[in-house]
Write a protein that binds this DNA or RNA. Structure first.
Lengths: 259, 259
DNA sequence: CCCTTAATTCCACTTAGTGGAAACGCCCGG
DNA sequence: CCGGGCGTTTCCACTAAGTGGAATTAAGGG
């Protein structure tokens, strides 16, 4: 059969489950035992036991005998590296992002969606002490709360967007009404100004804009500054930088029409 | 059943196959169609079709409709990030590695094995233009040709080592005899001096040492210099730096006995 | 517009996977 | 040193989930 097991349309249940197990590991949960995995994924313990064994054999998990637990193995970063290496967008504009970060003395990031989170393909953290400049990849930030995420939402299709908005409602019961309005306002801002500005973390001002290309997922590009008060003037200055930079990027990416 | 499908001891065949598909993507092969995947993995085309569909649904692959192909999705770097975040070794000595790179003005790397390749958890590339210092994770280098790999081989168990040496034979029919002798010489060097030196790439001299901890895979730590002629004097200077640094690292990692 | 090539769907077959229950083994406290 | 409890792995009967060759459909190319 293979088509449609309990609920799904088609696909392979075991593989889906195995991936779900890998996903259970996240920053903050470094090791997980079979029990915990079973709990988090809702899978029967015996099934988890078999799947983790397979993942160990395939090199995706390391077994920590002493703790009767598992942790993600190095293979996953090999694959992650292959992903970054193969990303045409990152390849095209990564160097430009570094240059721009140095030139403008601010943080520049490129991200796309992973379910309801935004994940950085690259986040260049500007620091006055240039030697400490930090490049991070893979970090996740919540879609609905960040400029990055809202720019992304502005870039995807109506139906996709509504689907995601529903999921936000489901997860944060609190402040939903106000938050959703916020999100929609940011989306309008993108449509009007090309970017949206959000101060998600205390003294950080961030602006972001979507990058829509043919045959690729929607990306979002952001710029941010730490240790500043949010002000409209600053936001529009950043926004102008971002729009200019995004325009340059789109030139480089020119062969893929926006629609 | 589930135990022992055609050859395997136990585990889940579909999951194994799905992982193998993910593994087929590597630096240089950014997109793959179902046909190519089938070829590379030896799986029947219909099976590949179903598994790739599942991987898309699980967010591990993006579909590139225009090319009838797939590419690794952003999720894989989220998981990669979680792996790095959860690595106790990287957490403990990562900052020290950065400091050491700056202090000694050389490259410092930490790696472990992924099958027969070494994969960097972190590779800090020193550049005289400090602002351009580059940190890479996930890159792979061949185990048998690099100081990193040979240090790793020196750190693992006899049986593991022999298993790997056999695999090297299998893959590079050429130069096998001489190469294996080389490898064994490097391993002896590690046992004698604490490190081994190899010039894998043209003008790069690298030294490496294993890090053996309880309940964790074996790691290897390396230091390297570009644009130098290989000389024994330089090698032993680097080796001394490395030994000193590794000793410091082991202090920090002290709670895990070497055996 | 037809032909080639590749991906997807179909479907009968059966094995590979499943999960509850039992066995195991580890760790802790007595 | 010896139970007792808890989490993990193994067992096993059941059968649905997965398989893969063949048919079908869809996508370029001439």
């Amino acid at each position: 059969m293979a088509r449609r097991y309990a609920g799904g349309v088609d696909g392979n249940r075991s593989l889906e489950r195995g991936i779900e197990i890998l996903r259970a590991f996240r920053p903050g949960v470094d090791t997980l035992g079979n029990g915990e995995i079973a709990e988090r994924t809702g899978l029967p313990r015996s099934t988890v036991s078999r799947l983790t064994r397979t993942l160990v054999n395939s090199g995706m998990l390391d077994e920590v005998r002493s703790e009767r637990a598992y942790r993600l193995a190095a293979s996953v970063i090999s694959i992650g590296h292959a992903m970054r290496t193969g990303s045409p967008v990152l390849n095209a504009i990564g160097p430009m992002m570094r240059a721009e970060s140095a030139r403008r003395r601010l943080n520049v990031g490129l991200a796309t969606a992973d379910r309801t989170m935004m994940v950085y393909l690259e986040s260049i953290r500007y620091s006055p002490r240039a030697a400490l400049r930090n490049v991070v990849a893979g970090q996740q930030v919540p879609m609905e709360l960040t400029s990055l995420g809202r720019a992304y939402l502005a870039g995807i299709t109506e139906t996709e967007r509504e689907r995601l908005l529903k999921q936000f409602k489901r997860r944060s019961a609190a402040a939903t009404r106000a938050l959703l309005a916020e999100v929609r306002r940011s989306i309008s801002a993108v449509e009007r100004d090309g970017y949206c500005a959000v101060s998600w973390q205390p003294a950080v001002l961030a602006v972001a804009t979507p990058i829509v290309l043919d045959g690729l997922p929607v990306y979002a590009l952001n710029m941010s500054l730490q240790n500043v008060e949010r002000s409209d003037a600053l936001a529009s200055e950043l926004g102008a930088y971002l729009n200019a930079f995004a325009a340059k990027c789109k030139e480089v990416l020119g062969d893929r029409e926006p629609k």
